Simulated scan of single mutants.
Amino acid sequence: MPISPLLLRADEAPEPRTLVDIFRATVAAHPDTLALDNGRETLTYAALADAADDIADALVAVGVERGDRVGVRIPSGTTDLYIAILGILAAGCAYVPVDHDDPDERARVVFGEAGVAAVVTADLVVRATAGTIPDSGVREDPDLTDDAWIIFTSGSTGTPKGVAVTHRNAAAFVDAESLMFLQAAPIRPGDRVMAGLSVAFDASCEEMWLAWRYGACLVPAPRSLVRSGVDLGPWLIAN
Rank of each mutant, 00 (worst) to 15 (best):
R69L: 12
P220V: 04
G215Q: 03
A118G: 01
S198A: 06
P103L: 08
V72M: 07
T121K: 01
A216G: 10
G190H: 11
T42V: 15
F181D: 04
I151Y: 11
L86W: 06
A128C: 09
K161W: 03
D32T: 10
V193E: 13
P186G: 14
G155N: 07
N38W: 10
A46P: 09
Y214A: 14
E206Y: 00
D202E: 10
F23K: 08
V126S: 11
Y82W: 05
L81A: 07
A200R: 02
D32Q: 04
G196R: 04
L225V: 05
R213N: 12
E206W: 08
R192E: 11
P189T: 11
Y82F: 13
V126K: 10
D37K: 14
N169D: 06
T26A: 11
G233P: 06
A46H: 15
L36S: 06
D191V: 01
A238V: 07
R17Q: 13
D175S: 13
S198R: 03
L89C: 01
G158W: 12
V138E: 13
A171E: 03
S224V: 01
T18E: 09
V174I: 10
P142D: 14
G162C: 11
P142M: 07
P220I: 06
R213I: 00
G233E: 14
A195P: 00
A52N: 12
V126P: 10
T44A: 13
D53S: 15
L36N: 03
A170T: 05
G63C: 10
G77F: 04
V230F: 03
A128D: 09
R40E: 15
G71V: 07
A49Y: 13
A94W: 07
V98L: 02
T157K: 05
R9N: 15
A10K: 10
A117D: 01
A117G: 02
A94E: 07
T153D: 13
A58Q: 15
H100S: 09
